[in-house]
Amino acid sequence: MNTLLQQFGFDVLFKGTNMLRLLGGLGVALKISILSVSISIVLGILLGILMTLGNPLINAIARVYLEIVRFMPQMVLLFLVYFGATKAFGLNLSAQTASIAVFSFWGTAEMADLVRGSLNSISRLQYETAQALGLNRAQTYLYVLIPQMVRRLLPLSINLVTRMIKTTSLVMMIGIVEVLKVGQQIIEANRKASPNAAFGVFATVFFLYFIVCFPISMLSGYLEKRWENKG
């Protein structure tokens, strides 16, 4: 048994506080994810709704913003904000703040695009029916369009959220010690004693990401089914 654990490099996980350290790293990754996802959902919904109001100025600005995000690799943006902006603008951002800012900047754009798409996929006549019943614009959005939008949005946004969680592994590039970085440190520290640690540690990191993302996916499936039965 022990030799098998050694063969695949899982033995290092039981040395000292290694497993706890990995979980601590996961905590850092989750903290960044949860904060950026929350900010992205709130701002993305607001921007997405604004984009359906047909204001040419808002639409032009949003379009430029979305295009920038679409073509900019997240890592370049991360470097730009953390290494570039701190020097150029004298901003003293911590690595975590910089990464939350970058991930929110990215997530908000994608979320807004999903919200806009979901709203536009609702028949124009639903809007007109609500108007004909005397609902004003805010009431039409609140009671008729947004509840329908949320149902269409859910599967798409779950995909975005899991992508954002996965991509937090990039933040180790600006010195944040999150789960992947902790994994590397453990492997480095045990290079002599457990030369095969790489497989065990990275497989564990992989598994940790899986147990975070899988329940989110399950929840999405459950809600979709529930809504389908309701309406």
Binding site: S123, L125, Q126, E128, T129, A130, Q131, A132, L133, G134, Y143, V144, P147, Q148, R151, W227, K230, G231
Partner: peptide, 17 residues
């Protein structure tokens, strides 16, 4: 509009209600 009721060809009931 409150005083004018309108019924559309495609019913347009609100599907989530």
């Amino acid at each position: 509009r409150e005083k004018i009721g309108m019924v559309f060809q495609s019913y347009e009931l609100f599907p989530h209600k």
